[in-house]
Each structure stands twice: as structure tokens, then as C-alpha cells.
């Protein structure tokens, strides 16, 4: 009797960025809630259906106080999807997860993006490439979910490039290149000298250990064929 293994499908992880409103209460929280109520009375329903991130930087709330603030806001139809600026210890089970690394956006953009979704209008897409002059150093992360990323220098070991489209590196690629994060299977990765730690396209990834060693130090491009990342030298 033979046992046939079920066909293995890859589990895909995709990055996606969303816009959220950030509420930053000020101490004392009680007084701030009163002001909030006065403001909300004038714009009822403002927060319905909107993801909100709570920024508690500088408030120094303990776990109980934080839980109370979250439930107080819940009663006011404000749904908290994440907490920013709290100690990792205070955001335990039962509370929204702690977030970090957010980027500032104009409030109008946030409201625009959501009304766009509400109206089922196609989301505005900027396909402009992001050009990084010079090197991306270890520990730096470049995220450009709307298009290609072009780096004129090298990408250091421990640096990360995340692009919705393709990634072009005109120096040495030593770090991680993650292309096609918004579901673009046609995205490619190009580099003039290949030393990458990790490459991913559309959620499929390959670590350095599983890449062909003879490609090291060459100019390389990578693309997706079905569920496989294909890599080839370019000269």
C-alpha cells in the first residue's frame, strides 16, 4: 500500500497597510473624557466603523487604568484596534495589541481613504516608484506599499526593503528584499550584486540557505513562476 502525501500548498503571508485615526488622551484622563464627550456630542457617529489606535505615550497608565480607558471609549462607540506607546507588560490578554512604527498621515487622508472604501470607489493608487539615493543601512526599513523601490546604493545586512511592486538595487543587496507585498505576483527583484539574506515575492519567500550559491556576487534577478521563486544571473 502506498501512502500519497497531500499536495502541499504554500501558506502565504501578505503585508497590507491601513490608515487608522490615532486618539491621544491627555492627563488627567477623566477631564479628557469630559472634553471628548462634549466634542462627540457635536459630531455623533464620527467614530462608527472607523479603526482607531489609542496613543497612551506619556500617560503612564497601569493595566487596570488602561483597561478602564479602553472600555470607557468602547461605551462611546470608539473601537480601539491597537494601543501605541504603552509598556509591553500592560497590554496583556483582553486588551488590544500594542502597535509601534506608525507613520504620520494627515487626518484628511485617513477620512478620505475610508470614505473611498465606503463608496466602493477604486482606491487611489500612486504607482510612483520610491527612489532612495545612496545606501540603506542595517536596521533601516523602507516600506513603499504602492509601487517599486529603487535603491541607488547598497542594502546592508539586516536592512529591509518592502515594496508593493518590484525592487531594484544598483549596489549590493545584502539585506532582505520583499517585493509584491500587496499581492503583485508579477513583481521582480533586481540587484547588481547579490548577497541577499532573504527574498520574497507576493508572500513567498526564500532564505539565503536555499538560494543557489553560484549566484552569489553576481547580478541577479528574481521572479515568481507559480509557487516558485526563480533566480537567474543577468550577465
Amino acid at each position: 500500500m502506498t501512502i500519497t502525501a497531500p499536495p502541499r500548498t504554500s501558506i502565504r503571508f501578505r503585508g497590507r497597510s491601513f490608515l487608522a485615526l490615532v486618539l491621544a488622551p491627555e492627563a488627567p484622563v477623566e477631564g479628557w473624557l469630559e472634553q471628548f464627550d462634549a466634542w462627540a456630542a457635536e459630531s455623533p457617529g464620527f467614530f462608527i466603523g472607523r479603526p482607531v489606535v489609542l496613543d497612551v505615550t506619556g500617560l503612564e497608565l497601569d493595566k487596570a487604568a488602561l483597561a478602564k480607558l479602553v472600555s470607557d471609549l468602547n461605551e462611546r462607540t470608539v473601537r480601539i484596534m491597537g494601543i501605541e506607546g504603552s509598556d509591553p507588560g500592560t497590554c496583556g490578554l483582553g486588551l488590544p495589541p500594542s502597535l509601534s512604527g506608525g507613520r504620520e498621515k494627515a487626518v484628511a487622508d485617513v477620512l478620505d481613504a475610508q470614505s473611498a472604501i465606503a463608496q466602493k470607489a477604486p482606491p487611489r493608487k500612486s504607482n510612483d516608484p520610491l527612489v532612495i539615493e545612496g545606501a540603506v543601512r542595517s536596521g533601516q526599513v523602507i516600506i513603499h506599499p504602492e509601487g517599486d523601490v529603487i535603491v541607488t546604493g547598497s542594502v546592508g545586512s539586516g536592512a529591509e526593503i518592502v515594496a508593493g511592486g518590484s525592487i531594484h538595487v544598483y549596489g549590493t543587496l545584502r539585506g532582505r528584499a520583499i517585493a509584491g507585498t500587496t499581492g503583485d505576483a508579477k513583481a521582480r527583484i533586481f540587484c547588481r550584486k547579490f548577497e541577499a539574506e532573504l527574498m520574497a515575492i507576493d508572500g513567498l519567500y526564500k532564505t539565503a540557505d536555499s538560494m543557489r550559491p553560484e549566484l552569489r556576487s553576481h547580478a541577479v534577478q528574481a521572479w515568481l513562476e507559480g509557487d516558485a521563486i526563480i533566480m537567474a544571473a543577468m550577465n
Binding site: 545606501a135 540603506v136 543601512r137 542595517s138 536596521g139 533601516q140 546592508g156 545586512s157 539586516g158 536592512a159
Partner: peptide, 13 residues
């Protein structure tokens, strides 16, 4: 060398 690369990134930002 990698730690220095990280520091250079911080010096530039």
C-alpha cells in the same frame, strides 16, 4: 561591520 552599518544609518537620520 554590521553594527557599524547600523550606526551609520542612525548618524544619517
Amino acid at each position: 561591520v554590521r553594527d557599524s552599518d547600523r550606526i551609520i544609518g542612525l548618524l544619517d537620520s
